[in-house]
Amino acid sequence: MTPAVDIRDVSFAYGDAPVVKDVTLTVERGEFLGLIGPNGSGKTTLLHLMLGLLEPDSGSIDLFGEPVSSFEAGSRIGYVSQQSTNRGGSMPVTVRESVTMGRFAHAGHARLTDEDTTIVESALETVGITDLGDRLLNELSGGQRQRAYIARALASEADLLALDEPTVGVDAESRDSFYRLLDSLNDDGITIILIEHDIGVVTDRASRIACINTELFHHGDTESFVESDALAEAYGATGQVVHHDH
């Protein structure tokens, strides 16, 4: 089976400043990849390249065996961006309205069907926020809101879930239950790519780890990452290691 994401020799620069350099990385289907690196290391840029939000200067990226630039099956990817990039905090949108957006890529210009409604309701149920369906997103706590975004990705029936620091500003307890939810989704076969600044969470949850700081410092399973000195090398210059005890 073709991998979910296949990155070969990808480089990307903003102007003259290289952000991602010669990265080659494969994400297999069903994998839970933790993408870590210091601040400004190009994690988010690499994720945006994978999703086709940015185009690489050189190298190639395939999504499910298709070049990312011509990949049209938008409903296969669920994307939960950093909280600051969407309007859930200010725009009056109900939880159910936001989750229903997951069906839009399927429906196109047609009306939503009863099946769409059923899928939305079951997505709300999976993440445990059915009773919040009619509430405004901006009335929810950070943890509840992130669940709503995950529900939107589930409603789109995505095979690949890409999350960019989803738990920034979320309290510790909700964060744990959020990551348990990711675990169980991964057990159901959904490929997950997670950017997270808390390395403890990543080593606890992810099956494989990619550690980058412009270049790829490590890519492999979690055990080999913990034993290697990739972390020290990647973080060497900035030295900002966040530790989290479980």
């Binding site: 936001s98 839009f104 429906a107 210009h109």
Partner: peptide, 22 residues
């Protein structure tokens, strides 16, 4: 009326709408 869903999606979360290939 014809593009309500698409307009709502780009208004709410432009990046996610791009990822969904709108």
């Amino acid at each position: 009326l014809y593009t309500y869903k698409q307009l709502l999606f780009i208004t709410f979360d432009e990046q996610a709408a791009r990822v969904a290939r709108l």
